[in-house]
């Protein structure tokens, strides 16, 4: 048990002393994953909305692809981005391999299907009559679409948070395309791997606790959004609740 006690003591010291090593790594993690989710949102939300609302040939296939994306192994995405950015790769001239930009690119690829898939479910959960009804009150097509998205807003929020949670905790892709370079591309997950190998369990545990705390916060927000979502769904059934 000593190894755990020792590690916990070291972790507490690092966390409460405001150690710059942990702080910098946490900062980079949030920056890389945050940017990746932003890109994922810019891709995933329009795709999710189009697939969720639109009717076009091949739609089923796109839905299946998006859902496959949920199970996309980070190392496979890492491999793909690595090959893309490697010196012999099609984007090798950009010299982006082992930079935060490469990490953002890889994580954005991981986040997009998450965001698209949850967006898709969220917009489909809103009855399509909402748009007709908005039109019946004089809304233009765009205004009616907006009304629809507004009804799905909690689900859209959940899509963003879930996407963030997914990329923040992955290690395979950032390790491969970032290279875990101290001060440049070392993020929490890659640091935990490294510190564990070095036998510095305290540092690894401190990073792990921070990661857990962030994950917990993310899930707390998700749960709150989902609870709120239930309330929103009830409101649409207002006319069918005889007991209310």
């Amino acid at each position: 048990m000593d190894v755990f006690l020792e590690a916990a003591r070291e972790a507490a010291r690092l966390l409460f002393s405001g150690d710059s090593y942990v702080r910098d790594i946490l900062g980079l993690s949030l920056r890389v994953s945050g940017t990746a989710v932003l890109v994922g949102v810019l891709i995933g939300i329009p795709v999710g909305v189009a697939v969720g609302i639109g009717r076009f040939p091949g739609r089923q296939l796109v839905v299946a692809l998006i859902h496959t994306g949920f199970a996309l192994p980070p190392v496979v995405v890492g491999l793909f981005v690595y090959m893309l950015l490697s010196r012999e790769g099609p984007a090798g001239a950009l010299e982006l391999l082992f930079t935060p930009t490469a990490m953002v690119l890889a994580q954005a690829l991981l986040a997009s299907p998450y965001v698209a898939g949850i967006t898709l479910a969220a917009v489909q959960a809103v009855p399509s009559d909402v748009r007709l009804e908005a039109r019946a009150l004089g809304a233009t097509r765009v205004q009616a679409l907006w009304a629809h998205l507004r009804e799905a807003r909690l689900g859209l929020g959940a899509a963003v948070v879930a996407g963030f949670g997914a990329v923040l905790s992955e290690v395979g892709a950032v390790m491969m395309v970032g290279g875990n370079i101290l001060g440049e591309t070392r993020v929490m997950t890659t640091a935990i791997v490294l510190e564990t190998r070095r036998g510095r369990y305290g540092t690894a545990l401190a990073l792990g606790l921070v990661l857990l705390a962030v994950a917990f916060t993310v899930n707390l927000i998700l749960t709150r959004l989902q609870q709120g979502r239930q309330a929103a769904v009830w409101s649409t059934a207002g006319v069918e609740r005889p007991w209310a």
Partner: peptide, 22 residues
């Protein structure tokens, strides 16, 4: 024109916001 549907969907928000939508 204005229409009222058989099972009206009220937009999430207050009564006032709904009545002001159009």
């Amino acid at each position: 024109l204005a229409g009222v549907f058989q099972r009206p969907h009220l937009f999430t928000g207050s009564v006032r916001e709904n009545v002001g939508y159009g």
